[in-house]
């Protein structure tokens, strides 16, 4: 493991990289950003996530995690540095394609599921990309099958359980056939069974995953690699198990393992 100052010298841990020569799914170089009110949230983030990797983005509240996520599909931008997705730079002209490639699953599924039925919601993204007819139906069915919600397709989102809504939110981005899925606190408010179901689904997907979370055991379960974002820079980058086994590092960035949980004991 490498603890990098200001995001330099990161060690790349390769997950399921099918083509080592392919451009990385996400490449951030010296990304800095200040909000219009003058508050600066990012101070030069360098991050490279290879195709097929599953990476946890850890960090205390206010570290800039959400700001960083908003850069990945171009909702925020205009500061310093560059972001590229699968080799495609995020600029105004590429936004539509970038937003297809990067699917963001927001923390509150009610923000994400805004259409009258689950099916409509899953179809929203691909329809915006111009997909229509049988192709659209097939995509929606595939996405819903992947999150095991096929039988609830015609229900209003309001009638789903919270765990089902979270999975439906995952399906809404899956239907866009993204290269990267970014999840904001995917395990929050889930009961243990829903949490496990979601983990199984995420592990079954053949995409690059970046997961923003405070849930360190969940990060360990799902992501071979972790990155700590603190005060707007990458403070650590390495195998999740090693990061979680370093109490001083965790304490320095206000991260805490649940009581009784010791990653070193796990195989």
């Amino acid at each position: 493991m490498t603890i990098a100052d200001n995001g330099t010298d990161t060690l790349e841990v390769v997950g399921r990289q099918d083509r080592p020569d392919a451009p990385p799914s996400l490449l951030l170089e010296r990304v800095a950003y200040a909000y219009p009110d003058g508050h600066q949230a990012l101070f030069g983030v360098d991050l490279r996530i290879g195709r097929g990797e599953r990476v946890a983005l850890l960090g205390p509240n206010g570290a800039g995690k959400t700001t960083l996520v908003m850069h990945l599909n171009g909702i925020l931008g205009g500061g310093d540095g560059t972001v590229s997705v699968g080799g495609l730079p995020v600029v105004k002209d590429t936004l539509q394609e970038v937003r297809r490639r990067v699917g963001i699953v927001f923390q509150d599924p009610d923000d994400q599921l805004f259409m009258p039925t689950v099916r409509d919601d899953v179809a929203f993204g691909p329809a915006n990309l111009g997909v229509r007819g049988a192709e659209l139906d097939a995509r929606v069915d595939r996405a819903l099958a992947a999150v095991r919600l096929g039988d609830l397709a015609d229900r209003p989102p309001y009638h789903l359980s919270f765990g089902q809504r979270r999975r439906a939110a995952v399906a809404t981005v899956l239907a866009m056939e993204p290269e990267v899925i970014v999840l904001d606190e995917p395990s929050s408010n889930l009961d243990p069974a829903s949490r496990r179901e979601l983990a199984q689904i995420l592990l079954s997907l053949d995409v690059t995953i970046l997961m923003v979370t405070h849930d360190l055991p969940y990060a360990l379960e799902l992501c071979p690699r972790s990155v700590i974002l603190s005060d707007g820079v990458i403070a650590a980058d390495g195998p999740t198990k090693e990061i979680l086994s370093d109490p001083d590092l965790l304490a320095a960035h206000r991260l805490e393992l649940p009581f009784g949980f010791d990653p070193r004991v796990l195989g």
Binding site: N73, Q96, I104, D111, F114, D120, F124, M176
Partner: peptide
């Protein structure tokens, strides 16, 4: 504020000004 978040979520999935209700 929820309206603003919904708008972000819509943008993130390529909202172009129409709701594709079929």
């Amino acid at each position: 504020e929820r309206g603003e978040r919904v708008h972000l979520a819509m943008l993130s999935r390529g909202y172009t000004g129409t709701l594709p209700l079929q």
